[in-house]
Every structure is written in C-alpha cells, then in structure tokens.
C-alpha cells in the first residue's frame, strides 16, 4: 500500500458524496419547495457548467505564440458558436478538437 489512509479517504469521500447526492431525495417529502426555489433550480445547469469549464479553458497554457498561448480559448469560442448553430454535441466536440489541432500546428 502506497498511501496509509487510502481506503479511509475513499470511504469518507464516497460516503459524503452519496449523502450530498441523496440530500434532497430525502428532504423532498419533508419540506415544500417554494416557487422561488423552483425558479432558482432552473438556473443550476447554466451556472454550474460554465463555472466548471471556464477555468479549464482560460488558464490552459498552449503553444501558439500568435494567440498568446491561448489557442484553447480561441478553439473553444469557435466551437461554442458551432454548437449554437448545429445543436449537435458530437459535431461540436469533433470540430472543437479539430480546430485546436489546427491551431497547434500553425
């Protein structure tokens, strides 16, 4: 065993994560969710996913000096436009990877 507390960390992290996931499944029949709370629920995906991905894209240091090493940011913005137009996830991912490949080859 390489790490002393490996299983302890895994079990507590797993248990805590499960409780997080189960939290509202347990609470739902005990508390009434207000209209206002329901409205804020609709903003969850458009708040959490951008916050999750923005640092991944923004802070990445690439190799294209012309684009100040921010070719991922450029490729990402173009792919966002493609996604908006095509509404197709697979097309978006493949074209995003292709654009990035192109930008790193220049």
């Amino acid at each position: 065993m390489k790490f002393d507390n490996f299983w302890l960390v895994v079990i507590f992290l797993g248990l805590g994560t499960f409780l997080i996931r189960y939290s509202f499944f347990y609470l739902s029949d005990k508390v009434k969710i207000s209209e206002r709370a329901k409205r804020s629920l609709t903003f969850i995906p458009c708040a959490i996913f951008p916050a999750l991905l923005a640092p991944m894209v923004f802070f990445h240091e690439g190799s294209n000096a012309v684009l100040l090493n921010k070719e991922r940011l450029v490729a990402f913005l173009i792919a966002t436009y493609i996604c908006y137009k095509s509404k197709n996830i697979l097309v978006t991912i493949i074209s995003g990877l292709a654009i990035l490949y192109g930008l790193t080859q220049i």
Binding site: P45, C46, F49, P50, L52, L53, M56, V57, R72, A75, F76, A79, T80, C83, Y84, K87, I89, T92, I93, G96, L97, L100
Partner: peptide
C-alpha cells in the same frame, strides 16, 4: 479538451 467541450455542449440547450 473534449472534457470542457462536452460540458459546453450540454449547457447550450
């Protein structure tokens, strides 16, 4: 790079 791209593609709709 497919990771942030997939999150973005899930957000747009």
């Amino acid at each position: 790079f497919a990771v942030p791209l997939s999150f973005m593609a899930l957000t747009i709709p």
